[in-house]
Amino acid sequence: QTAPEVRWRCASSFPRTLDTIYGAAEHVSRRVAAMTDGKFQIRVFQAGELVPGLQVADAVQGGTVECAHTASYYFVGKDPTFAFDATVPFGMNTRQLNAWLYSGGGREALRPFFERFNTVSIPCGNTGAQMGGWFRKEIKTVQDLNGLKMRIAGIAGQVFAKLGVVPQQIAGGDIYPALEKGTIDAAEWIGPYDDAKLGFNRVAPFYYYPGWWEGALNLSFYVAKPKHDELPPAYREVLESACRDATLETMAKYDAQNPQALRQLVAAGTQLRAFPREVLQACYKAAFELYDETAARNEAFKKVYDNFRAFRDTQFQWFRVAENTFDNFVYFQHAQEQRGAAGEQRR
């Protein structure tokens, strides 16, 4: 039996300029072709080439493209449950989210939800923990959030809104000049590597961390359900493993590129600031209130949320034991050494 020729078009939600994220879909395309001797071809189109970036879910649902590469939280307007396939504020970190999706029943919990949209969602890429964005003024207390005009979308915007922030989804091309002149006070994007390309550092001095609304952003490879069903089983496996590979690939790239990019930003005058604990606590409280409110009126959301939260609890317990203790110790020790070395140099 010979393997059939399959040709798909993949609509990415991202522009080519976001080479790491956009590159995940291209990576899948390359791997899939390589593993099938070129029989299974996926051609990737950047946002807008086939459909606008925010319309790819509709395209897959309607079967007008075979597949798409996106971040599911773009579609929280259709249903907030989409967010769990991407990330939610104060959710899990990359390792934990992957554990939930790949081995912890996350995909199984989301599958019936995606079936309502005629879509199969495969995890495909991750940004890791993001930065909290660019601010024109410092945030020292919760009161500083009141009246703060920030360009931030989705659920994070709703959480911020609970604390008096004014989420402003102004036009993409207006963000830079608006941030420059103070028409808005803050805007967020991804992490150092991607942010540096936008040049927000030139107009907003304070670069906040962590991006508590995106402790890890899982990207998704959407496949139209009928197309997925008719795919030969071997190709389905190939696609699965190519997507897994892309998750590792994007994570590795970001982790390799971000440190240097952050140094470059700081060298260019950026001032790093951590969100004060008090602010984080207020946001944390607001976020979980919002989830409870949403779960009370959305059955699908509640179902996935219960699963997600239960898994998160056990993860947090485990990660505090070995991972976090190890991390904390080596970072601490390393910092001590560096300080010592710097001190000696000075002497």
């Binding site: 773009y74 307007g77 259709k78 979308a153 989705g154 915007g157 709703q158 989420p167 989804q169």
Partner: peptide
């Protein structure tokens, strides 16, 4: 269907 933006 609503807006993906808070308050949309």
């Amino acid at each position: 269907e609503g807006s993906p933006n808070a308050g949309g």
